[in-house]
Design a binder for these strands. Structure first.
Lengths: 206, 206
DNA sequence: GCGTTTCGGTACGCCGACGTATCGATGAGT
DNA sequence: ACTCATCGATACGTCGGCGTACCGAAACGC
């Protein structure tokens, strides 16, 4: 009965009226992820997030039961593939474009990944959220790009280098800050793809 | 006077007589690093280490002022290059052997690295110790291997793929557990080197 | 406009870990 | 054999963050 709920965010939920707008919620998410990137997961305090968003700690706990659930929700909200819409018809160009996009997000993503590295050991929900936010979308998109290149016949399906490309790109993105102390900016990653990835696929430039 | 100290570990240090033998100390170091690998840095407790080594918490604090200093000391003690003695005269064989060695240590090293990822944000000494224990020795050794290959003329000095090889290997070692959920065992890494690294150097097998 | 719900602010209890202090026991050096 | 520093054990103080409870105030539904 009374199933005639016009168009609320929740179809049912009769008396649900949180004053937290989606924009406000996103502020919370942005704040907590920023703190995580800055100080690491364990150093983030609910009090700190509340202060930086000028809300009450109680307000945060009304929306999310615990701190890991809060962070996991923030991760899920930030889920987005950096590779969407890449489909130029050329595998080499697609890989270059993916490299550019990955490099553009590398600084933020790497810090987040590094900061959560240990926290996901203890909370499976956090681990799943991190995978779904930062890893799976990009890896899947990258595999799509490669698959299309194979289907177009640009590279042999049994090229042994194919299976390592996602791990290579992901790995180099995360490795450069550690080894050289500076972020893997787009120029670096594009150059890496051109120097070390395309050749193994037989996609050498003219 | 009485400068005739035969062959103690400390030449002077008149009344220094700690009962902690070097072997015992190494037990402490092994225990704390094992706990770090298992639960992450912040979850490690001095009490837990003391319990697992059947020593007193006070004993640990007598040797090391604080927990980060203790962990840093453990890291420094574990410093060792996994690539020592690799010099077969063939760059391809050297890289294969380095890959085998890196793969053999990958599981332990990656867990340690991941677990300390956030802790090094806050403690510079810890960061330095981690670099000197897990990163610099292997990267330096790898660069040596590559340099010798260049000097022997096996690969051109201006090959653009050269500069990315350390980051590639380090990155793939750390990336596979994340992407595929299993450690980068030696077989995997050797196959990676053969499929994706050697070709970029023009070292294709017959 | 009025009631009710949620908001921001804050004070509180709780717990766990750090790091210190104390105490008998033990083992090394003379 | 004697002495004394160090050992293992444990109890304690301290601190900080989690999560809860309570308060006036503001905003939404009717």
């Amino acid at each position: 009965m009374t199933s005639q709920a016009a168009d609320g965010p929740e179809t049912v939920a009769a008396t649900r009226r949180s004053k937290i707008t989606p924009e406000r919620e996103q502020e919370f998410f942005d704040a907590v992820l920023e703190q995580v990137r800055a100080c690491g997961y364990d150093s983030v305090t609910m009090e700190g997030v509340a202060a930086s968003t000028r809300c009450s700690k109680a307000t945060l706990y009304r929306q999310w039961k615990t701190k890991p659930q809060f962070v996991a929700a923030a991760l899920r909200a930030s889920r987005q593939s950096r590779f969407d819409g890449i489909d130029s018809g050329s595998l080499a160009d697609d890989l270059r474009e993916a490299a550019r996009a990955a490099g553009a997000w590398s600084a933020k993503d790497t810090r987040l990944f590094q900061a959560l590295g240990h926290a996901v050991m203890e909370d499976p929900e956090l681990k799943k959220a991190l995978r779904e936010a930062l890893i799976d979308p990009e890896i899947d998109a990258l595999r799509q790009i490669l698959r299309r290149g194979v289907e177009r016949g640009e590279v042999a399906a049994d090229n042994p280098a194919l299976e390592y490309i996602p791990a290579q790109i992901f790995g180099v993105l995360r490795a450069r800050p550690v080894l050289e102390g500076e972020d893997a900016d787009p120029e670096y990653i594009v150059r890496f793809v051109e120097a070390a990835v395309l050749p193994t696929l037989g996609l050498t430039e003219t």
